[in-house]
Amino acid sequence: MSRETTVNLLLALLLLGTPLLAAGLGEPFYVTLATRVTVLALAAVGLNLALGLGGLLSFGHAAFFGLGGYVAGILATHAFNAEPLFADIPATTSMPLIWVTAAAVAGLVALPIGAVSLRTSGVYFIMITLAFAQMIYYFAISWPAYGGEDGLSLSMRNAFPGVNTAKPLPYFLICYAALMAALLLFRAIEGSRFGSALQAARQNGTRLAAVGIAPFHIRLVAFAVSAMITGLAGALYADLNRFVGPSMLSWHMSGELIVLIILGGKGRLFGPVAGAMVFVFFEYVLGGITERWQFFLGLILLGIVLFARGGLLGLLSGKPRHV
């Protein structure tokens, strides 16, 4: 077992153990905090697929995160008010249905965005993905039907068969299971022929084209799958907060997702998990100490990017990767 695998296992156990312990000690808030870590990590796992494996630096993944959130929010609102969605399609509060819808919507929106964006590369790709996310952001702010800038408040969490989702621990376990499933998927993709082609496209797109594989299609599929995972995370995030608003779509959110990945170590399986744990930890601890917390958070991020290449997992597992 390599050192990184050991570290990964420890991280997975730590993320599972902390809320179990906190619940046992009667400190439900730490369960909620761990759920936040888990959901943000899930969103970043999605981005990591595009960014880490495919080298596609999307600065617009908040669009998919927010879309997923709005799918959950809109379906729940319609169901609560007993209004059908369109014509006679009924809304739902069933989490599995919402997840499928959220992932599907995110994926479907990602296809045209990806089809346009992937024609560009480098900084142009960063900026055009940002532009698409901004479009959706401004649309959400100014569209009155679903709360505009106020967003949507969910009166209760959506339902999962056989689980009381209102309680912190069961909801954490649902999110944790989703994160583990996404990590398994990531690992499977990484090791598959598709994954090899994706990584080859990152390293040398021309050579890949020369052997008869179109990098464009590989990347587009990766981009869409990546968006679907992030969209699923958005739906879970909306249920966690019982709230969805345009700030989930903002460029700060896109930036934060990137931060999580680099903090943890890009392209590494558990990079987003380590990144989310550290980011939320600092945000929480610093926020409790000083109102200048953003200043110190900035300093810490700067320190990590300058002096800890390969992110935290690079530090912990002691070997560079994808240099």
Binding site: F59, G122, I126, G255, V259, G298, L299, V305, R309
Partner: peptide, 11 residues
């Protein structure tokens, strides 16, 4: 670019 984005975001 990734490192640049993060570092200048921190700035």
């Amino acid at each position: 670019h990734l490192d640049q984005v993060l570092a200048t975001f921190a700035l």
